[in-house]
Nucleic acid binder design. Structure first.
Lengths: 269, 269
DNA sequence: ACTTGACTCTCCCCCAAGGGCAGGCCTTAT
DNA sequence: ATAAGGCCTGCCCTTGGGGGAGAGTCAAGT
């Protein structure tokens, strides 16, 4: 039997283009090529080889690899090393894609959550905070440096992170240039390292308010929350906390009007 | 601040080639290009955009997708649809690679096993066969057609297959052209369909011999096994079974000298 | 024998995301 | 002023083909 390229293409479900490419690369050379017309004619042996090629292609081998394997091996058992290599390759691709997948999922989740919260108006509320494990990095400087501290800490702690970025403010008053604060993340586990302190952050009774808008007008919300505390006759404890529910994103700086920040102040009384 | 392309490359860990490509594609256009020398100069805003590009590239977006996203969105929440699409893409890649991975693992396992058995000499042995669930396809024809039946059945049953291909021979004598046999696979579960019979294959006391070599000389091994049965005073039952431990592979036909076939004959007595 | 329609040939350009190199211009420091 | 190192454009290469142009071929019907 002798098959023209079109017939052979239908038999093997390989496109004519592919067959010509395989011929050029000497991966699948037609049994007969008409010297005058250049027409390719395939036979049974070509068909067997084409089947092998398709299987190996389905295993994600490149054409060059397939050529080597088919030319140098006569039995499947000789393919074992190549198969093992390819298996490792595939498995590391899977690992990589899994990481990407969970990173995207996390980002989507985060965006969804902050979209949901964006239409609400927020009131001062009282709640009970739980004790959590945090990794903190103490800094002195301007409030704007909080962002840098967060990205630093994020890179250090990577996959141990278990919640949204926070900052603890140790000053009882507003300080322009010399504020004393600590950026931190809730974490699953970790150890002290490079100025990073890992410890429990005690919970307790707390007055909280979600602030919507740019950080420049955080003062308004602080005013509201302190008025509330005063009204109730509570006594505010230090450090106060800011939880950055939605801030400048990883990708865009975003619109500061949509930033969400929860101010939490532990109180006594 | 104004950075030359080399400086900017070091800052962003993007190669100079990439930066020039991104410029050409208008993905990342330098803040300033010297009209006379063509030198590119980048600024802070370029740096922010480069960071975004790197993140999206890490998420496996193409440059064109990244350009669209960065040009048309001002906030991360607007990226949600694209992120979800990409997540689906990534997840289907993971599924695909997982299938490849398990197929390769199976093939490796199979090859390893048959390599191990290849140095042994085999003797007739007695053993107890368990009852198994099989999918069988009854055929009449030549013994050479067994191969075709097996690939047909393999394609139908796919992932339900739970063991090596077998054939059941219902003739008490050797038949050249008109043999009555049934190719089958052990399976996990399944239903009758298109002439495929799914049922239990009863086990029992059995005399078995692993035959090494081409199918043409299976007769020699049958002679040995029947001699043994006769010696012991057993009574052979039909159908007899052949289990194709190693035959022509998926990829190569392989060397028939290394084929391994277990002949199993249930006996009474 | 001729025509016609379906096949097939080679050759060239295209995709993504750059890598590598050649030949020439530019900047900067000494 | 000069040298070293930076930067420019332009061209070819990679993988696994897809698309199409223009020309030649094959097989069947008339």
């Amino acid at each position: 039997m002798r098959f023209s390229i079109g017939e052979f293409s239908r038999m093997t479900s390989l496109s004519i283009k592919s067959l010509r490419l395989y011929h050029e690369k000497e991966l699948l050379v037609p049994a007969e090529v008409d010297k005058f017309t250049g027409y390719r004619y395939y036979n049974e042996a070509n068909y067997e080889r084409a089947k092998a090629i398709k299987i190996l292609k389905a295993f994600d081998f490149t054409l060059a690899e397939i050529k080597d394997m088919l030319d140098e091996c006569a039995d499947e058992s000789e393919l074992l090393p190549q198969l093992e290599n390819k298996l490792h390759e595939i498995d590391s691709k899977i690992r990589r894609y899994r990481e990407i997948s969970s990173a995207i999922q996390e980002l989507i989740h985060y965006q969804r959550e902050s979209l949901m919260m964006n239409n609400k108006e927020f009131e001062v509320e009282e709640k009970e905070l739980e004790t959590i494990l945090i990794a903190g990095y103490r800094m002195k400087g301007k409030y704007q440096d909080v962002g840098k501290g967060i990205s630093l800490l994020y890179q250090k702690m990577g996959r141990q992170i278990n919640g949204k970025a926070m900052a603890l403010y140790y000053d009882a008053e507003y300080k322009e240039d010399d504020a004393d604060f600590e950026v931190c993340f809730p974490i699953r586990k970790g150890k002290d390292e490079d100025g990073i302190s890992v410890r429990e952050l005690r919970g307790g009774k707390c007055v909280a308010l979600i602030h919507k808008g740019p950080y420049e007008i955080l003062g308004d919300s602080y005013k509201r929350i302190f008025a509330y505390i005063h009204d109730k006759g509570y006594w505010p404890l230090l450090p106060s906390r800011e939880v950055y529910i939605k801030g400048p994103g990883w990708i865009f700086k975003g619109n500061p009007k949509n930033y969400l920040t929860e101010i939490q102040i532990l109180v006594e009384g």
